[in-house]
Computed example of a mutant assay.
Amino acid sequence: MDIKDMQQEVDRWIGQFEEGYWPPLAMLARLTEEVGELAREINHRYGAKPKKPGEPEGDLELELADILFIIICYANSLGIDLGEAFKKMMNKYRKRDAHRWTRKKIREEK
């Protein structure tokens, strides 16, 4: 599924409810909540904060997907094509960061 398909699927799902998309500030709060849930799980797995005994392991894939859902909602509500936005963003990084980091050496095949 490409990002355009994702945007259309989310729009169809949201479109079945009278309330529609949340206002931008409410979506920002929701995005912040979801990023916090991801941060908590990352901290449990890779950071200094172990889980409490008996606390179930979280699902990193689902946490990332929740963030993606809110980002898609945001884009849809503001009329942003995420595919085009992604292309612009990658172009920016390619130009700005072309020489910022050490490139991997490409091995020649014999």
Rank of each mutant, 00 (worst) to 15 (best):
E33K: 13
E84Y: 12
L60I: 05
F69T: 00
R96W: 11
P23I: 03
Y93D: 08
G83P: 01
P56E: 02
R100G: 06
L31C: 02
L25R: 10
E18S: 02
M90C: 05
L28F: 12
A39L: 08
A29N: 06
R12D: 10
Y74K: 05
L28E: 02
R103W: 01
A85H: 07
Q7T: 10
L25H: 09
N91F: 15
P24F: 15
E55L: 13
E57T: 02
D59I: 02
I14Y: 00
N43P: 01
W101P: 00
I14K: 08
P53R: 14
M89C: 14
G15D: 01
D59S: 02
K95V: 03
K110D: 14
E84A: 12
F17M: 04
P56T: 07
Y74A: 11
V10H: 09
E41I: 03
G54A: 15
A98M: 08
E84F: 09
A29M: 06
D81G: 03
R94D: 13
E41M: 07
V10Q: 10
K95R: 14
A75R: 03
V10A: 07
M27I: 07
H99V: 07
E63P: 08
K105E: 11
V35M: 11
D5Q: 04
G20D: 04
V35E: 03
A39W: 15
L82F: 08
L82M: 12
E19C: 03
C73R: 01
N43S: 15
Y46L: 12
L64F: 15
K49C: 14
I14G: 02
E37K: 13
W22Q: 11
N43C: 15
L62K: 13
G36T: 00
I70Q: 10
K51H: 05
V35Y: 10
K110G: 11
V10L: 13
P50F: 14
L64M: 10
M1H: 01
A85R: 06
E109P: 02
A98T: 09
I80Q: 07
Q8G: 01
E41P: 05
S77M: 00
E41D: 11
K104L: 15
S77I: 06
D97I: 11
A29P: 03
K92H: 08
E108D: 07
A65Y: 11
K104S: 12
I106W: 13
M90T: 08
Y21H: 06
A48I: 08
Q7Y: 00
L25P: 06
Y46I: 04
K110L: 14
E19Q: 13
K4A: 04
C73W: 03
N91S: 09
V35I: 10
G58L: 07
K88T: 07
I106E: 11
A39C: 11
Q7M: 05
A48H: 14
E63Q: 08
R12A: 12
G79V: 08
D59C: 03
I42L: 14
M27L: 12
L38K: 06
M6P: 01
I106P: 07
N76Q: 05
P23R: 12
E18M: 10
E108T: 05
W13F: 04
V35R: 11
E61Q: 13
A26S: 00
D97H: 15
K95P: 00
L78M: 15
G47A: 12
T32I: 09
Y21A: 02
R103L: 09
Q7N: 02
F86P: 01
Q7A: 02
F86C: 00
Y74F: 15
A75Q: 09
E84G: 05
Y74V: 02
Q16K: 09
